[in-house]
């Protein structure tokens, strides 16, 4: 009997509270737009924040409220944009699929080492003391971008430079932020040329420390003044349409290969791309 009273008391109390809550839930129910849930389901649920919202749920809310584009999720790409647009009953808007590109070709062979670095194996740490290469703009290859990538899309290859998998990269931009030297940028997947160097050194210095640095010779800019300009000792592609159609040789004149075509490599486990070019 002495056992029964506490059990009954707790049981009744619990029951009362749960009934109270259940009633309150019905009375105070907030009508959430069912679209939000549907949009949320269509999203990749990576919660990476690449869309600029705090997560997939926040993005779904913003899309339904009209504060974000249906194509605002860079990770999901066209498929997700289409699915979201279908739910909202509007046109998807065009998604330009992008991927991360590495603006450095300074492999272990090409770029001179500054000495043996034995500190914390992280680019951010190494960058504090000037890095492990004589070039202070080049990739240090400790893989901060690899660690930042949520999708295992980046690996450091044997030559010491990161390689981005075209298949796995979702262009979320985490690696762009992670790189202390700003070597990574997001480029449209269809882009077929870029400058593979970020060195702002004058030509003499750049040539001394790396075989594939932009040495600011300006050959490409002279060959195609409308498409390429020199800025702070670095070639910058301003208008690729000009180069693309008429002046393709312009980028092939580069003595160090610092500007050039992107050779899209198929993933090991992915079907070969039709746009693959011979190197």
């Amino acid at each position: 009997m002495s056992l029964l009273i506490p059990i009954l008391t707790m049981g009744i109390l619990g029951l009362l509270f749960s009934v109270g809550l259940a009633v309150a839930y019905q009375k105070l129910k907030v009508d959430v737009d069912p679209k939000i849930e549907k949009v949320s389901e269509a999203l990749p649920q990576a919660n990476c924040g690449a869309c600029g919202f705090s997560g997939c749920a926040a993005f779904a809310e913003a899309v339904v409220a009209g504060k974000a584009e249906a194509s605002g999720c860079p990770v999901g790409g066209e498929e997700t944009a289409q699915a979201v647009a279908d739910i909202l009953g509007q046109a998807a808007g065009s998604v330009v699929k992008k991927m991360a590109r590495i603006h450095c070709r300074g492999t272990k062979e090409a770029a001179l080492a500054r000495g043996e670095y034995e500190g914390i194996p992280s680019c951010t740490a190494a960058n504090l003391i000037g890095g492990n290469k004589q070039c202070s703009y080049g990739c240090m290859g400790f893989g901060d971008c690899v660690n930042a990538c949520l999708f295992d899309a980046i690996v450091i290859s044997e030559n010491g430079l990161p390689v981005v998998s075209e298949e796995k990269c979702t262009a979320c931009g985490k690696c762009v932020d992670a790189c202390p030297r700003g070597i990574i940028s997001l480029q449209p997947l269809a882009e077929n040329m870029m400058v593979f160097c970020r060195s702002l050194d004058i030509g003499k210095t750049a040539r001394k420390v790396c075989k594939t640095a932009c040495i600011a010779c300006g050959i490409c800019a002279r060959a195609c003044p409308d498409g390429i300009v020199m800025e702070n000792n670095l070639a910058v592609i301003k208008d690729k349409s000009k180069i693309e159609h008429e002046q393709i040789p312009a980028i092939e004149k580069c003595p160090t290969n610092a500007i050039g075509r992107i050779h899209r490599k198929p993933d090991v486990d992915a079907p070969p791309q039709e746009s693959q070019e011979s190197a």
Binding site: G14, F17, L21, A24, Y25, L28
Partner: peptide, 15 residues
């Protein structure tokens, strides 16, 4: 029990 239920209630109410 009281606190957990009340917080739930307050949450629903504020929402």
């Amino acid at each position: 029990l009281v606190i957990a239920s009340l917080v739930q209630l307050v949450e629903m109410f504020i929402r």
